[in-house]
Structures are given as structure tokens and as C-alpha cells.
Design a protein around this nucleic acid. Structure first.
Lengths: 204, 204
DNA sequence: CCGCAATAAATTGGCGCCAATTATTACGCA
DNA sequence: TGCGTAATAATTGGCGCCAATTTATTGCGG
């Protein structure tokens, strides 16, 4: 029940648990459960939840508690549009900065996702997917951009995840990744933008 | 010293005070001062400051306190690049959605800034400027996009403000606003993007 | 007169209790 | 047996104290 130094990460731990679908959309996050699950004091749990509210990753209802936000369809659309703007906006820098070894590393990460898509757990798929996109965004060399992209992604994650793992969409995502790598290798910015946009807009 | 219902707004009040330059860049935000200035309890002040840390609008140093972040030049550059991506990414929707009355309203707001630029206080200039851009962004019809744009703008506000009010840059900004209105009226998306980009990149 | 060290004042920050509110259960009455 | 209501249990949420740390002040020696 004691956490002295690492207080901040608790918010991220809870956030990650939400991303991994360990709490269902609309589910209440009971403070007592959380303090047990993460071995934290009640106060720390509340601080973390409050931070997640500011980040819009959980919703707060007065005198009722904190819950995983159930965002309506139109909000999901808004999120998607912002993602398209940001992630396509990142393309020019990505293409400009990518070295041969960057491409090689990306390719390896895309391959890791391929493997996970075929024979991995949900968590493997989620992890390798995130690693691939993280590596790609990092190529922009702009930490503010990277952070902004992830803040939007993380906000819209609660819903899509449940419907995500159909074999078909999974295979499609996998193909997209490899195609992105190809575009970057060829310096094809326009092509990369196209792939990213359809990757985001695909009916998850 | 008592605030029962309106707890959340305190963070925004403090944020606004920072935007208006009432605290200098790098200045320490003493909790005692804040609780006096805003007639809030110590606990509420700390909650608000913690929220602002999550939003990256203030910086926290352990055992020393909270201060207005002094962001180094390269960070300012990163912010600008993200702003360009977001605000130019908003252009297509703005142009597509703008009705004749929207253009009229924008024009009026641009004019209000013109007046403030000539004979208003700093606060007038800041306010009318914000109102103009808020109205323009609102035309996207995408609240997530609007909010994202402002979260980036508000993070990079601390420094530029002091150097902002030279008559020349002020006049330049004023011209930009009117040109933006013109582009929207003509449905000239490419032109609008250009103006916005140079508006943002101009050496404030 | 200046620099350094010990002391005092001020400020921050971790933590937990208890009242207020909501959900649940139990009971009595139609 | 079903429904409304009251008692009970569970959960949330506002608030404040005091230790830890830093900064300012004072006093002393060189």
C-alpha cells in the first residue's frame, strides 16, 4: 500500500489497463478496487484519476465516481479526423528524416506485428502495434507532435478495442504497416499519407 | 476562502492569469499568494496547479513548487510546427462550412482586433485576438480539433507575450486576420493555409 | 567589511479522517 | 406477491494538520 517516489506513473498504469481493455467501456472505476489492484493509497488513486480526467481518458460524475468514458459515434469521428490531420501532418518530417537503419528498424517492428497478428495474444498485438507507430512517429524528431498524437489516440481507445481483433481487420492493419514502411523507404510522402489515412479511417 | 461548487474553473482562472502575462516566465507560483489572490483554499490551489501540470501549462519541481515554464527555443519551434499542422489541417473544414454570416461575424471580429491593435490595452488585444481565432476554429465543427489547437496554443503562450506588442508585428497580425477572412469568403483553401502558416511562423 | 555557518522562518507536500451522498437491502403494507 | 419506504451498508469527496525541505536571517570569526 505504499508508494513513495513513483507517484506519477500510477496514472499511466491505470491508463494502460484501460487501453488493454481490462475495464469495459462505461464501467465504473471503484477507488477501493484500484487501490488494491495497484497497491496504492486511496489518496494516490484519486490523484491519478483526477489527472486522467484532465487528460480526458476517464470521466467523472460527481458523487458517483470515475468511469471509462463511453464516447458516442460522432465523437469517435471527431477523434479520427484529428488523428488524420496530425498523423498525416507528420508525414513530411518522417520521410525527410528517415535513414536506412530507421527503415530497417521499422520493418522489423512491422514484422513483429505480423507475427503477433498471426499467433500472439491481444496484448502482444496491442504492444507491437504501439511500438511500430511509436517508432514511426519518433522519426519526426518533434516530441510535442508525438505526444499530441498519442494523447488523441489514447482518448479514443476505449471503444474500438473490443471490436478490433477480427482476423480480417488485423490482416489489413498488418498489410498497411508494411506498405507504410515501403513508402518511407521510397520517400513517397503522398503515398504514405494515403495509407495512414485509410489505416485510421478503416471501420475498426 | 471558500469555494464550494466551482472548483474546476480555478485551474482555468490561473491559466488565464498566466496567459495575460500576470506572472512572468520562470516565476514561481507561491501557493499562499494564489490562495489569497483567488480566494481559494490551499487544497484547491494545489489541485488546480496539479491539473495545470498535466496540461503542461505549469512546471513542477519537487520540494520547490510550481512555476511558469520557461521553454527553450527549440521547444517553441516544436510547438509552432504542431500549430501549423493543426491549424492548417483545419482549413478544409473551415472553408467548406463557412456561411455568409459566418464570414460577416469573422470580419467583425477581425475589425475588433484592428481597433484594439490601434487604441486598446494589451488585454483588449489579447482578448480580441483570441475571439477571432476561436470563431474561426469553431467553423470546423470539430470540438476535439478546437480543443487540441488551444491546448497547444496555451502551452506556448508564456514566452511570446512579452515581446508581442511591437507596433509592427501587431499591424502585421491585423493584416493577416483580414486576409484570412478574405480567403474564407472566396473559398480559397490554399491561400488560407499559406496565410495561417506565415501568421504562426512570424517571429513574434 | 565580507564570507560562512548555525539558527529561524517560510513553504511545500504526504497522508487520513469523517461527513455527505448514493446504492442496497429489509420490511411492512396494500 | 408486488411496491413503496425506511434502515443499513458502501462509496465518494472535502478538508487540514504536521513533518520534510528549502530559503532567509542572523551572528560570529577572519
Amino acid at each position: 500500500m505504499k508508494r513513495k517516489e513513483d507517484k506519477r506513473p500510477l496514472a499511466d498504469e491505470i491508463a494502460q489497463a484501460i487501453q488493454l481493455g481490462e475495464f469495459r467501456t462505461g464501467e465504473w472505476l471503484r477507488q477501493i478496487d484500484l487501490e488494491e489492484r495497484f497497491s496504492a493509497t486511496r489518496f494516490d488513486v484519486r490523484t491519478a484519476l483526477e489527472a486522467l480526467v484532465v487528460r480526458k481518458e476517464v470521466q467523472h460524475v460527481r458523487n458517483r465516481g470515475y468511469k471509462v468514458p463511453a464516447l458516442e459515434p460522432e465523437m469517435i469521428g471527431y477523434h479520427r479526423d484529428v488523428r488524420v490531420i496530425l498523423e498525416c501532418g507528420a508525414v513530411p518530417q518522417i520521410v525527410a528524416n528517415a535513414t536506412a537503419e530507421d527503415v530497417a528498424r521499422l520493418s522489423a517492428l512491422a514484422e513483429a506485428f505480423s507475427v503477433a497478428a498471426k499467433s500472439g495474444t491481444h496484448m502482444d498485438q496491442s504492444r507491437t502495434n504501439r511500438e511500430f507507430h511509436e517508432a514511426m512517429h519518433a522519426l519526426t524528431g518533434n516530441p510535442v507532435l508525438v505526444e499530441t498524437i498519442w494523447s488523441i489516440r489514447d482518448r479514443g481507445r476505449s471503444a474500438p478495442f473490443t471490436i478490433w481483433r477480427t482476423p480480417d481487420t488485423l490482416r489489413q492493419s498488418d498489410e498497411d504497416h508494411h506498405q507504410m514502411v515501403r513508402c518511407i523507404r521510397e520517400g513517397n510522402a503522398a503515398g504514405l499519407s494515403e495509407v495512414i489515412e485509410s489505416h485510421i479511417r478503416r471501420p475498426h
